[in-house]
Simulated scan of single mutants.
Amino acid sequence: MFSIIQAAGWPIWPLLLCSVVALALVIERFTSLRTSRVAPPRLLDEVLGVTSQHVPTPDMVNRLAENSVLGQVLASGLRAATAEPNIAEDKLRLVFELAGRRAVHQLERYLNTLGTIATAAPLLGLLGTVVGMIEIFGSQAPGGSNPTLLAHGISIALYNTAFGLIIAIPTLMFYRYFRGRVEEYVLELEQSSDRLLGQLLRFTTP
């Protein structure tokens, strides 16, 4: 591997940095976007069961907010209903929407960076190709070409192009995968908020 890096020249170092950052972000997103940390399967049913008779206590709401991203969204509506028993439907819906936006921002964390790496890696590889071509043309002296410089230029051109694609292809696949997961979670957050909203409105006075 070290010999390949040496043969690829200096343009490969930005690509190596991109590969390390992309791998770290993929691992982080796999950890953060687990179902247990975003939307546990039975959490909504448990919250609806508790709120079927009365609004939960502040301690229960705080524990709910610490449970998951979905718990944070549901807890925001419960806090609003507790703080203002006569809250209007539009205002309560706005509370859920603002909490949902914060949740979406949290779910989409680092995805733009991952998408940027997927886009930039082939361009960095192309930069290495151009540098390699410059090395090749530079080896063409009037008295004959320099085989060493010619081989070095070919190595820079080919290795950087290949390495850029090796980074970009899986990074783009993971980016699309995580984007799809986020969209599924957003839909689930919206549906859960609507169900809890309808139940909380029963405790408000007209």
Rank of each mutant, 00 (worst) to 15 (best):
G128K: 00
I117D: 05
A141W: 04
T129P: 05
Y175F: 15
G115L: 06
T113R: 14
N146F: 02
I87C: 02
P85K: 12
N146H: 07
A157P: 01
E108H: 09
L111P: 05
E97P: 01
F174V: 09
N67P: 01
A65T: 09
V69R: 04
L16T: 07
F203S: 05
S76H: 08
T129C: 10
T148E: 13
V50D: 09
E97F: 05
L17Y: 06
G143Y: 10
L187F: 15
T51Y: 02
E89D: 11
N160T: 08
D59T: 15
Y185G: 07
E84T: 10
Q140A: 14
A157S: 11
L124F: 06
M1S: 10
L17W: 08
R79P: 01
V50M: 14
V182W: 00
P206K: 12
T57P: 07
E135R: 12
S36C: 09
M1L: 10
A83F: 07
M133D: 01
D194G: 08
L23T: 09
Q6N: 10
L124D: 01
L70H: 03
M1D: 10
L114N: 07
L44I: 11
R179N: 13
Q72S: 12
S52L: 14
V38S: 04
Q53F: 09
N86A: 14
V38C: 08
I136N: 00
L74P: 00
A81M: 13
I166N: 07
I12H: 02
P40I: 04
V182F: 03
M1A: 11
I167W: 00
H54M: 10
I136T: 07
V104Y: 10
P206T: 08
V104H: 12
A80D: 02
R63K: 13
L197H: 11
G49L: 07
F174Y: 11
A141S: 12
V55A: 06
M133N: 00
E97Q: 10
Y110L: 12
T82W: 03
L111G: 03
E84P: 01
G180I: 05
A103Y: 05
S3V: 05
A118T: 06
E84S: 09
Q53A: 14
Q72P: 02
R63P: 13
L15G: 04
I87G: 00
V69G: 00
E135S: 14
